[in-house]
């Protein structure tokens, strides 16, 4: 994640990047490197600049200052937040996944159909291929978009809040899926609000609040000083089975009051 964290191929490097939609910068002086073997979680409160960081990585916005260096010929797959999707749009799962192949006739070729079915099978949703996208559960909708991204054979998969709105089982499945994809050679970068359910399970984290507060292993990022600076509130962190567990300060306060 940083220049000394790994030896695998460097895919994207942000150096001193600053960006804002108006005069006020959303992100300032950001340094971040994504390598081919990385599985990175970007954590931070709402409005901290997580999605903007994704947009910079994806190249849909250009930095006001600093440089972004991409590996030549880098292919990036992007999975958007489910909340931004028009679920009444008239497409089936197959039609949605086929969008990844941006050239060609309206209908899928035999090879494309086989490729789509193989990807859907890999993600456990092949039996939903002809369903309308609204008929899927949240976890299935996420898998559909992952399938669409994977059809491009991306070196880097970027996902915006992939576990948002998922139940515990779906979230667990999603984390396993991401770990599997990463083990198969796809670099993954996700944003998440969920410190205990998601972030603590990822090998690398970046805490963001208009700048990079800290980056590294969960043990290094999920600690009281970093969390307080990132979320603007003091937080307690316990260790459970070797993993950090964040105590929600408001829940903890309420519990103490209730006990008293």
């Amino acid at each position: 994640m940083n220049d000394t964290s790994g030896t695998s191929e460097r895919l994207i490097r942000l150096s001193g990047v600053t960006f804002g939609y108006d005069a006020t910068p959303v992100l300032s002086d950001v340094d971040l490197t994504v390598r081919a073997s990385d599985l990175i979680g970007v954590v931070g409160p709402s409005g901290a600049g997580k999605t903007t960081l994704l947009r910079l990585l994806l190249g849909t916005v250009r930095p006001h200052a600093g440089t972004i260096t991409r590996h030549q010929g880098l292919t990036v797959g992007y999975v958007p937040q489910l909340e931004t999707v028009n679920w009444n749009f008239p497409v089936t799962v197959t039609e949605c996944v086929l969008m990844a192949r941006r050239r060609g006739w309206p209908w899928a070729s035999r090879g494309e159909r086989a490729d789509i079915m193989q990807t859907l099978e890999r993600l456990g949703i092949a039996h939903l291929a002809d369903r309308h996208i609204r008929e899927l559960s949240g976890g299935q909708q996420q898998r559909m978009f992952i399938a669409r991204a994977l059809l491009r054979r991306p070196q880097l998969l970027v996902m915006d809040e992939p576990t948002s709105g998922l139940d515990v089982t779906s979230r667990h499945d999603m984390l396993h899926l991401l770990a599997d994809l990463n083990a198969e050679g796809t670099a993954i970068l996700i944003t998440t609000h969920d410190l205990n359910g998601v972030a603590a399970h990822l090998p690398q984290l970046v805490a963001v609040r208009h700048r990079v507060i800290a980056a590294g292993s969960p043990a290094r990022v999920i600690c009281p000083p970093v969390l307080e600076e990132t979320f603007g509130a003091p937080m307690q962190v316990l260790q459970h089975l070797g993993m950090p567990v964040v105590l929600d300060p408001f829940t903890a306060t309420d519990s103490r009051r209730a006990a008293a």
Binding site: G124, I125, L136
Partner: peptide, 11 residues
């Protein structure tokens, strides 16, 4: 369509 949901198969 909104009401009908189908469970996913194992990954």
């Amino acid at each position: 369509a909104a009401r009908r949901e189908v469970p996913a198969q194992p990954v």
